[in-house]
Design a protein around this nucleic acid. Structure first.
Length: 593
DNA sequence: GCCGTTTTCGGCCCGACTGTTTTCAGTCG
C-alpha cells in the first residue's frame, strides 16, 4: 500500500470513530496522523522495515500497529470492524453542511436513517423536527444541504474562485467603508481547488458595520425556490456568509487594530492555526483573531498586544514569518522557529517558458507571435513542444513537419538573438511506454517532453510500467502531467507514484508541474516529495494561448506550496544554463549507447 | 490516542453563529 492509501484508511478510521461516538481527541489523533502520512517523503513500508514508525509525529503504539498492519496486509482489522458496525451511508450524511457526528448519530439511532434518500424523506414527512435538538429550521436546512450536495460538488477551480472573490473584494473596496480588504483562507494559501472564499474586511469605525453587512447580504444569490430571499448562510456582527454564483463566501468584519491577527487567523489552515495556538499557549500567550494576550506581565497582569503586521505576530511567538502557501501544518512552524524556512521561488525567478503549443499543432499563437509575447514579458527563452503524430486530434506534427519547424526555429533564433527558442516536442507515450517518434527524429531535438494522452484507463501496475518505461528512454527530458487528471471532472489514472518518482530520480528526468488550473498535475504534495528526492521540477503552463502566461503565476504559487526554491525549478535556469542542461542530457544519451 | 520547558495523568486552539433552548450544545472554520 502506498502512503496515500494508508493516509486515506487512517482518515476513514477517524470519520467512522466520530460516527461511533468516540472521544473527539481520539478521532483527531487519527486525523493528525493521516495528514502527517500524506506529506511524508519516505514510503511507510521502508519506515516500518527500519522500526521507525513511531518517529512520525502523533504516532504512538496503537496507530503504529494499525499502520504496520496496513503495510503488511493492505487492510486493518479496526477499520473492518468499524465498517461492519457503521452504515456507510452515514459518511455522506456527515458531509452535509450543518450535520456533524452528534446529529448524524441521532438520526441513525432514533429514526434508523442511513442514506440521503431516507433523510430527505424523513425531513419531508416532518419526522426530523420531532427529535431532541432538531426543529423545523433544521429540516429546512438539511433539505437544502441535500439538494446542494446532489447538484454541486461544492468545489471550485482556483482561478474561478479567485475571480469571484476578487469581484467581492472590489465591491467592498468601492463602498469606501473599509480601508483594507484582503482575500484570505485557502485562496491565499494556494489550494488547487477551493470550497469557499474567505475575505477579510477591515473597518475604520463601528458605524461602518451595519451598512457593510447590508452590502454583503446584497451580493448573495437569490435563494433557490424562494423569490425575494437571498442565499445567506449566516449573518452575525462579525461574520457574514453568503453564496454568490454558487460559491460560499465568508466575510469577516474586523476592527483596524486587529487586522494582522485576523489576517493570520483567517488565512489558516486550521491545522496551522491549531499548532500556532498550541505553541503560543506553551509560551504563556493566547492568540485569537483579535489580539495576542498574556505574555510575561511582571505583576502577572494580562496585557493585550495588537501586532502591526503578520511578521510582528509571528515574531512575538519567536517565529519567522511563514509564507501563506506553507501554512498547512507540515513542519513549517518548527522550521520557522529554527529559522530554516526555505527561500521560495518567485515569479520573477522564471527565465523561460517550457511546454508551449503553436499553430503548428493546436495552439492559438504562431511561433513568431509566441516569441514576441515572451520577449514582451522579459523571458529569455521558450521551449517549443508541439504535439506528436499520435495526437492526430491536436494536429500532431509528422517527422517532416518537425523538420520544417526546425528551419523556422533556426530563422527566428537568428532574428531574435539572444532570445532563444529550444526545439522540442510533446511526444505521446504509447500504451507500451514507447515514444511515438523514431529515435533518429528525437535525436535532432533539444529536449523531449513525454505525455500520456490516450488509453487513460489501465490497471495501476500497467500504467506504472508504462510511465517507468518512458522515463527509462534516454531521449526523455521531462515527464508531463503524469496523472492526466482534470480537476472536478476526471480523476487521474492510478499509478504508483513512489515507483515513478524513484525512476525519475534514477534516470535524471525532470517532472513537469502542469500549471493549467484545471490540471495542477501533479499536485504540490507530490512535487514536495519529488524535490526531496532531487528531481528537477519544470513548471509548465502547457500553453495553448496567451492565457498560459497567467497560468505560470499559478504554477509558481503551487511550486511555493511545495516548498520549492529557484534551484529546484528547471525554468529558473538562465538561457545559458538550460542550454547546458539539455546538452548534458544528450551527451549522457550518447555515452549510454 | 498521544504527549511532556509544569506533566507518565490530565490536558488536547479558540471564537462565532444557529437553533433550540430558557443557558447551551452542536457545528464550523
Amino acid at each position: 500500500m502506498e502512503n496515500r492509501e494508508i493516509a486515506a484508511a487512517l482518515a476513514l478510521i477517524a470519520v467512522y470513530k466520530e460516527l461511533a461516538g468516540e472521544n473527539a481527541f481520539k478521532t483527531r489523533a487519527f486525523e493528525n496522523v493521516a495528514r502527517a502520512v500524506e506529506g511524508l517523503a519516505e514510503p511507510l513500508a521502508a519506515l516500518k522495515g527500519q522500526g521507525r514508525l513511531r518517529e512520525i509525529p502523533g504516532v504512538g503504539e496503537s496507530i503504529a500497529g494499525v499502520i504496520a498492519e496496513l503495510v503488511d496486509t493492505g487492510a486493518s482489522a479496526e477499520l473492518e470492524k468499524l465498517r461492519k458496525e457503521i452504515p456507510g451511508g452515514l459518511l455522506e450524511i456527515l458531509e452535509l453542511q450543518g450535520v456533524g457526528p452528534k446529529k448524524a448519530r441521532a438520526l441513525w439511532h432514533t429514526l434508523g436513517i442511513t442514506t440521503l434518500d431516507a433523510l430527505e424523506e424523513a425531513c419531508r414527512s416532518g419526522a426530523v423536527r420531532e427529535l431532541d435538538g432538531f426543529g423545523a429550521k433544521s429540516e429546512e436546512k438539511i433539505l437544502a444541504a441535500v439538494e446542494f450536495k446532489r447538484t454541486s460538488s461544492g468545489f471550485f477551480l482556483y482561478d474561478r474562485a479567485y475571480e469571484l472573490a476578487g469581484e467581492i473584494k472590489e465591491r467592498i473596496e468601492e463602498s469606501g467603508l473599509c480601508p483594507l480588504v484582503e482575500v484570505a483562507g485557502s485562496l491565499r494559501r494556494g489550494k488547487d481547488t477551493v470550497k469557499d472564499a474567505d475575505i477579510l474586511a477591515v473597518f475604520a469605525s463601528e458605524e461602518s458595520v451595519p451598512p457593510l453587512r447590508k452590502l454583503i447580504v446584497g451580493l448573495a444569490d437569490p435563494k433557490p425556490g424562494k423569490p425575494g430571499e437571498r442565499d445567506v448562510i449566516g449573518e452575525g456582527d462579525t461574520k457574514v456568509s453568503v453564496r454568490r454564483r454558487g460559491l460560499q463566501v465568508d466575510v469577516r468584519l474586523i476592527p483596524k487594530k486587529s487586522a494582522a491577527c485576523a489576517l493570520q487567523y483567517f488565512t489558516g489552515s486550521k491545522t496551522h492555526n491549531t499548532q500556532l495556538r498550541s505553541l503560543a499557549k506553551a509560551l504563556g500567550y493566547k492568540v485569537n483573531e483579535y489580539e495576542i494576550s498574556g505574555g510575561s506581565g511582571e505583576a502577572g497582569e494580562k496585557k493585550s498586544m495588537f501586532p502591526e503586521s503578520e511578521e510582528d505576530l509571528y515574531r512575538t511567538l519567536g517565529l519567522d514569518w511563514v509564507p501563506p502557501e506553507l501554512r498547512e501544518g507540515e513542519g513549517e512552524i518548527e522550521a520557522a522557529r529554527e529559522h530554516r524556512l526555505p527561500r521560495l521561488v518567485a515569479l520573477s525567478d522564471f527565465r523561460g517558458l517550457i511546454h508551449c503549443h503553436t499553430t503548428g499543432s493546436d495552439g492559438a499563437l504562431s511561433l513568431g507571435e509566441l516569441v514576441a509575447e515572451c520577449r514582451t514579458r522579459g523571458l529569455e527563452y521558450l521551449c517549443l513542444s508541439d504535439h506528436s503524430p499520435s495526437a492526430a486530434y491536436a494536429g500532431g506534427l509528422s517527422p517532416e513537419d518537425l523538420a520544417r519547424q526546425a528551419a523556422e526555429v533556426e530563422a527566428l533564433n537568428k532574428a531574435h538573438a539572444p532570445f532563444r527558442i529550444f526545439h522540442g516536442t510533446e511526444s505521446d507515450i504509447r500504451a507500451d511506454g514507447s515514444l511515438d517518434y523514431p529515435a533518429a527524429v528525437l535525436d535532432r531535438l533539444d529536449f523531449v517532453i513525454g505525455a500520456v494522452h490516450s488509453r487513460l484507463v489501465m490497471p495501476k501496475a500497467e500504467a506504472t510500467e508504462r510511465l517507468c518505461r518512458a522515463i527509462a528512454d534516454p531521449h526523455l527530458t521531462i515527464l508531463a502531467h503524469p496523472s492526466g487528471r482534470l480537476l472536478l471532472q476526471r480523476e487521474g489514472y492510478e499509478y504508483d507514484s513512489e515507483r515513478v518518482l524513484a525512476a525519475l530520480a534514477e534516470h535524471g528526468v525532470a517532472l513537469e508541474h502542469n500549471c493549467h488550473p484545471a490540471r495542477f498535475d501533479p499536485d504540490w504534495r507530490l512535487l514536495k516529495k519529488a524535490a526531496a528526492l532531487g528531481i528537477v521540477v519544470s513548471v509548465d503552463p502547457d500553453l495553448h494561448s496567451s492565457d498560459g502566461f497567467d497560468h505560470l503565476a499559478l504554477g509558481c504559487l503551487m511550486a511555493r506550496k511545495a516548498w520549492l526554491g529557484p534551484r529546484h525549478v528547471l525554468n529558473c535556469l538562465s538561457r545559458e544554463e538550460i542550454d547546458e542542461y539539455f546538452k548534458k542530457r544528450k551527451e549522457r544519451r550518447r555515452v549510454r549507447r
